[in-house]
Design a protein around this nucleic acid. Structure first.
Lengths: 151, 151
DNA sequence: CGTGAAATTAGTTGACC
DNA sequence: GGTCAACTAATTTCACG
């Protein structure tokens, strides 16, 4: 299973995955060889799901982030699955959570501008017969974005 | 500024940043040298904000994701800044958006379990005098998580 | 699990078209 | 911007303790 050293390694790689194994070993207090073995295993085991660059949305013209809460008409299992599929396929949707509470789904939508958001709403939400209502909250500030899962 | 080749490079690196420049060049239809120059510039220009590993939350015991909407008491600028600072400092908060609409802030909180979420709520929200109310929506399914900013 | 050494591959720099 | 060559640094494999 996973020990504390693995957790420290994951903590470091979630901040920076371009460290050399020597640098990583230094950070977590181990040896480069051990770090390499562990990191490779973490990748093949699917603990590390991807290694990616994060891009500043504004720098690439996606200056509008919108948080959308969605209520489905009724929560029949096949309708829910349909909606999930649609959200996975929607390029504007960077994150989608199925939730309990006031809403059924929460979306994080990244688009160029309000026109592009309008297009998204009209083509992906209004046209979906399962969507009963939705609320849009436009992000004024992306205060924090650290897609980490442990410290 | 940024041309189409830069955008293709960013698109590729947002899926996988462990490609060699030769592989990257192949993918985007350019040369390794050109890719290296561009990627280094994209990093130094802050277009690429970070290079990180994504970790499966369940694999490391953070099986609970909660979307929290927060309303502040009044939106005085100093209070807003205080709240932002607190959220940036809160290890449980992986994302924080300041928004318009029904809420003032939307948080994505990642914790081990409901007890840990309870601790978060009590120490970071209830004790904050600026927080008027908040609503928690527990994620039943992390349908999509692609922290990309362009396709 | 850690070390060190050898082989391989990738990153980096500079000269050139 | 592309190509090539040369150098440096990192990854990978292996033998060993």
């Amino acid at each position: 299973m996973m020990d504390d050293l693995d957790r420290r390694i994951l903590g470091a790689l979630q901040k920076n995955n371009r460290l050399s194994f020597a640098e990583l070993a230094d950070l977590v207090g181990s040896s480069a060889a051990s770090c390499m073995r562990r990191v490779n295993k973490l990748r093949s085991d699917g603990v590390i799901t991807a290694d990616i660059s994060l891009v500043d949305p504004k720098a690439v013209g996606k200056s509008l982030t919108v948080v959308v809460t969605v209520e489905l008409d009724r929560e029949r299992l096949d309708l829910v699955d349909d909606f999930k599929r649609a959200m996975r396929a929607a390029k504007e949707v960077t994150q989608c959570y199925m939730v309990t509470g006031d809403a059924d789904f929460v979306l994080i939508v990244a688009v160029e501008d309000v026109e592009a958001f309008d297009v998204f709403v009209k083509t992906k939400l209004y046209t979906n017969p399962n969507v009963r209502k939705f609320k849009s909250m436009i992000a004024l500030d992306r205060v924090k974005f650290e897609p980490r899962t442990l410290l």
